[in-house]
């Protein structure tokens, strides 16, 4: 039961963030992928929204034990950003895609990574992002009585902000 005491040397054996970024780049050869910056145990990358599925298919093949931590969505005014946070080799990779603010739509990755189900539904609730390829996107966090088409985390709410 239990691994041995962790020493400082053990930690240095972890692959560096640069190594992880290089591996991702070579796996996604031919995709419009740009590594934005590296910080301590973090990699920030960006790509066009159309290639998300292909990206996760390849990365999952490379690291079968990939752990999707969460998906963040945010309304930055002119566009809606979706950031996938996932852990490979103890490095947290943050993949950013930008969507059109009027019709935010991106392909689902539910069938590749089943955990994303809850995260996608939450984003659909609070930001109104459409995930193409899902049969349905039922409510997750908002109450049943919440008005359709109103998204609390949008900067300029499309519906009536005040909840009855």
């Amino acid at each position: 039961m239990g691994a041995d005491v962790v020493s400082v040397e053990d930690r240095e054996k972890f692959p560096s963030e640069a190594e992880v970024a290089r591996k991702i780049k070579s796996a996604c050869d031919g995709m419009m992928l740009s590594v934005q910056r590296l910080s301590r145990r973090r990699v920030w990358i960006e790509m066009p929204s159309g290639e998300v599925r292909a990206f996760f298919e390849r990365v999952k093949k490379l690291w079968p034990a990939l752990h999707l931590s969460t998906i963040t969505g945010l309304d930055s005014g002119s566009e809606i950003e979706v950031i996938y946070h996932f852990d490979v080799d103890n490095v947290l990779v943050n993949l950013r895609v930008k969507l059109d603010a009027n019709t935010p739509k991106v392909d689902t990755i539910c069938d590749i990574l089943p955990v994303s189900d809850a995260y996608e539904r939450e984003l659909h609730d609070v930001l109104g992002i459409e995930f193409a390829g899902r049969t349905s996107t039922p409510r997750l966090v908002l109450p049943d009585s919440w008005p359709e088409g109103s998204y609390p985390l949008r900067n300029v709410p499309k519906g009536d902000e005040k909840h009855a």
Partner: peptide, 11 residues
């Protein structure tokens, strides 16, 4: 935690 020695417990 980078300075503290400890074990990770698994079963």
């Amino acid at each position: 935690y980078d300075e503290i020695p400890f074990r990770v417990i698994t079963a």
